[in-house]
């Protein structure tokens, strides 16, 4: 079974400049129904910010969402995927890098996103359709 990242990825999340505020990112997350915004500067992916990051790095620290910039709180070291990567490779990255969301990049442009939830539901669908769980887990 060689499912590809393109088969399970979600749409590319919103891209915002590092100078934009946390407050603006929260509004984008709400309006787009996503949990991540990519931080892009000059066409280059600089990092990402998740809803969790806003909770832990802004609210819990009593920082002001209106004046805190995305560049100040984004996660810069990213694990990236290509749409042609195997889903099992994505699962391995999630485990090894202890990340929950992976940007999917094609020709330098963000084209999608894979989350732990996408992988879990994908696997759950495999299992409920009668495929071999042991084989999946041993990959």
């Amino acid at each position: 079974m060689t499912r590809k990242v393109r088969d399970i990825m979600s749409a590319a999340p919103a891209c915002m400049a590092p100078t934009e505020s946390v407050s603006a990112a929260a509004k984008a997350m709400k309006e787009c129904g996503v949990g991540t915004v990519l931080v892009v500067s000059g066409g280059r992916l600089e990092g990402l910010v998740t809803d969790r990051d806003i909770t832990v790095r802004v609210l819990a620290e009593n920082r002001d969402p209106l004046t805190t910039r995305l560049g100040d709180i984004c996660t810069a070291e990213l694990a990236l995927l290509s749409p042609d990567d195997d889903v099992r490779y994505a699962a391995r990255l999630v485990r090894e890098r202890a990340v929950r969301r992976l940007p999917v990049i094609a020709d330098g442009i963000p084209v999608g996103m894979v989350s732990v939830g996408d992988l879990a539901l994908d696997q759950d669908e495999f299992n409920s359709s009668g495929r071999n769980r042991a084989r999946l887990n041993s990959s």
Binding site: K27, K30, G35, R52, I54, N62, P65
Partner: peptide
């Protein structure tokens, strides 16, 4: 949830 704090508070300009 952590997401609720973001979309129901920060996005709505509610303070901590």
């Amino acid at each position: 949830t952590d997401r609720d704090l973001v979309v129901r508070a920060v996005a709505e300009s509610k303070g901590p």
